[in-house]
Amino acid sequence: MRAFEGVKQKLAMELSGFTGTPKTFRTRYREQADNKHKLYSAAEIRAIRFGLLNIPPDTKRPLTLPPVIDTRMAKGGVGKTTICGNVASCIALSGYRVLLIDGDPQSSLTSLYGINWLDEEITHIGELMKRTSQGQRAHPEKAIRSIYPDGMLDLIPSDITMVDESWLMGAMNREQAFTRLLEAEIEFFSQYDVIIIDSAPGTSVLATTFMVACKTLLTVVTAEGQAIAALDVLASNVQEINAAFGRQGIHLDVHIVVNQFNTSKTPHQYQLSKLLPKFPGKINDTIIRDFVGFLRESDPDNISSNGPVLEKEPNSGGARDIIDLTKSLIKLYGLRLAGTTLPGQEKL
């Protein structure tokens, strides 16, 4: 069982977009007899936002696919999983229903949320895609692990067996295997407000299937030469996909997040000053700073105690960066509570 129950009032107020005084918030959303410091869970924040936006509490998402955020970079070690896992928890704590998919056989995301893939029975996303491709029911609802209750954050974990993608080689139209799964199981996938994928580095068919299903890749770079060079590798992947699937209306774009930035390192400043004019309008305004708390999130000897920064160090600079980044991504990817609110109306 995960120990995390929710966030404290100050953060709950910010994430729910409540603009009144702390006292009003307390009297409205805390029981009178409750003298302890109340913790607000993701589901409670969702209920608060529904109330603020006058959305009926039993509103169901329409039967359409939610936005897909694919965290993708050709180079490893730039912090894809860190950004992906932390942003996912922040989106969930902002009241959106999140489906998180670990698309990396290294399973770092799976263990970030305290699941030890070595000991557990895991049905990974590759297996689900395989079932659909072979004409069977995939049953994704049996594969998920509930991270935040009430479906606020569900995870499809992975393990090392996902490396085997030989079945994909023989599959028809293999690049669209993931899209096919989404469409075949739309009743399951449409209940989430967003699907977030942590993709493996390098170039594999599996990674390509995820890219084809999304509109804008979320790319993470460090302000270092090797990482920036890897952007060109990613660009050539993207161009191939756009050339091959352009006729089907697929056109991939990227959004770049600068991670592990250290203002005192001159090479970081230098590389960033080159990156900006090269990708105008594609770089997120929030720079994720080098923050040691991200290293404290995972302990391989004590996996069950792992958790993202908003759970472990919610008042840290790292948490602040993640919250700012998340807010901009919610806007960029057009996330909607139960598919209802209009853009620009979300903030009260």
């Binding site: 203002t263 960033l272 997120n284 305004d285 929030t286 700073r289 600079g317 602040r320």
Partner: peptide
């Protein structure tokens, strides 16, 4: 929150970051 967040726009505005010309 401990430190002020770091923004690309803020760095440019304060002159600490100058996008390279050319």
């Amino acid at each position: 929150m401990s430190r002020k967040p770091l923004k690309v726009s803020g760095l440019i505005q304060s002159g600490r970051l100058v996008p390279q010309a050319g």
